[in-house]
Amino acid sequence: MVSPRIAIFGAGAIGVYLASRLHLSGQAVTLVTRPGSSLPPVIDFEEGACLRKISVDFQVPADAPYKHDFVIVTTKAQDLPVALPLIRPWLDADGHLVIAQNGLPWWFLDHLEEGTVLRAVDPDGSLLREINLARTLSCVVFKSVERLAGGHIRALVTDGDRFVLGCPAIAHSPAAAQLADILAQAGLQAETAEDITVPLWEKLLGNVVLNPLSAISGLDIGNLLADHDHRARLVAGIEEARAVARAWGLPPGSTPDQRLLRTAKVAASGTFRTSMLQDREAGRTLELEPILGSVRELARRRGVPTPTLDSFHAAARHLSI
């Protein structure tokens, strides 16, 4: 049986991590990089106590496409509308687009109210109109990875690390099961979800507060949790997000203590900066609207007050270029 052709579109921390793990397992994989911005020929790949060098001979610039069965998109979520025309030539006609991005995906509100566009993620509705959801998977990443200076990828090893796959249009997707098997063969904890909105919201409960507050404060997650006032704001923001979920008839997800317990486990594994703090320090645009703006949009549509999340959004917006 011929192995599926897999491309990872985006050479950020998660993209390089996934491509490296698949490459190390013997899976044919292509890491799609921004033209003129390739990785060094050899990178340092650190996971837990293991540090090795990897020859990145599987990277190809985005302007030299060829067809793949799965294209896993790991770019920043706000970049998807602009990136989509560049992604399409990489995807076989019978292939699957796999979204492994932070925040809520463009189809989330349509899933709750058919035909309704989530403007925070899809301002002109083009993603909802143009992307075939039957050939789309969401990959929810519960894994803490940083791309450090140069070609150094650092991944923490934490209880609860996993990759959850599901199709928004098909409850039991054979493609999701196939890709989960491939990730498992690469040594990753991978599973499928009948309703992918549940793990999407569970991850969002952490991101919606930890990402903006870390960017605002400049603190890594360990120091963020250790500060009494910051922790109280984290708890308040999670409760607001849970209220939004209830207003839409969604499972609210973990309690603040439960959700922050995983964060504490990540912090215990090593110093870790959220993706939004990494972006702030690197002078990149923050993923503010997909992570925070999307929840506020859902809240406004149901009249749910979110004063803590609103304050995070107002403060973080001034940091984003």
Score class of each variant (00 low, 15 high):
3 S>A: 15
3 S>M: 14
9 F>Q: 07
11 A>F: 03
15 G>R: 02
17 Y>G: 05
18 L>D: 01
18 L>W: 05
25 S>I: 00
29 V>G: 09
33 T>P: 08
34 R>M: 02
34 R>I: 01
35 P>T: 06
36 G>H: 12
37 S>P: 12
37 S>N: 10
39 L>I: 10
45 F>K: 13
45 F>P: 14
45 F>C: 12
46 E>M: 12
48 G>H: 12
50 C>S: 15
50 C>F: 14
52 R>A: 06
52 R>F: 07
55 S>Y: 11
62 A>Y: 10
65 P>Y: 07
67 K>E: 15
69 D>K: 00
70 F>A: 07
71 V>R: 02
72 I>L: 11
74 T>F: 05
81 P>C: 06
81 P>T: 05
84 L>V: 11
85 P>C: 09
88 R>M: 10
97 L>A: 10
98 V>T: 07
102 N>V: 08
103 G>K: 00
104 L>S: 10
108 F>K: 02
108 F>R: 01
110 D>M: 02
117 V>A: 04
118 L>D: 03
119 R>W: 05
125 G>W: 05
128 L>W: 01
128 L>E: 00
129 R>E: 09
131 I>M: 10
133 L>P: 10
135 R>Y: 04
136 T>R: 08
137 L>D: 13
139 C>E: 07
144 S>K: 03
145 V>E: 01
147 R>D: 04
148 L>T: 06
149 A>E: 15
154 R>V: 07
156 L>S: 07
164 V>Q: 05
165 L>K: 04
168 P>N: 02
171 A>G: 03
174 P>Q: 01
175 A>H: 03
175 A>V: 04
176 A>D: 09
178 Q>R: 15
182 I>Y: 08
184 A>P: 12
185 Q>K: 12
185 Q>S: 14
187 G>A: 02
188 L>R: 11
189 Q>A: 15
190 A>F: 09
194 E>P: 06
199 P>S: 01
200 L>T: 13
202 E>H: 12
203 K>F: 07
206 G>Q: 07
208 V>K: 03
210 L>F: 11
211 N>Y: 09
212 P>S: 08
213 L>R: 09
213 L>G: 13
215 A>E: 02
218 G>Q: 10
219 L>A: 13
222 G>N: 04
224 L>T: 08
226 A>T: 10
227 D>H: 11
229 D>M: 03
232 A>F: 06
233 R>A: 14
234 L>S: 02
234 L>V: 04
235 V>N: 09
240 E>A: 04
241 A>P: 07
241 A>H: 11
242 R>D: 07
244 V>G: 12
245 A>R: 00
246 R>D: 15
254 S>G: 14
255 T>D: 06
259 R>G: 10
262 R>L: 12
273 R>Q: 13
275 S>V: 01
276 M>C: 08
283 G>E: 03
285 T>Q: 13
289 E>N: 01
298 L>G: 02
299 A>C: 04
299 A>M: 05
299 A>D: 13
301 R>D: 00
302 R>H: 10
303 G>E: 04
308 T>Y: 04
308 T>Q: 08
309 L>S: 03
311 S>D: 15
312 F>I: 03
315 A>Q: 11
316 A>D: 01
318 H>G: 14
320 S>G: 06
321 I>W: 10
321 I>P: 15
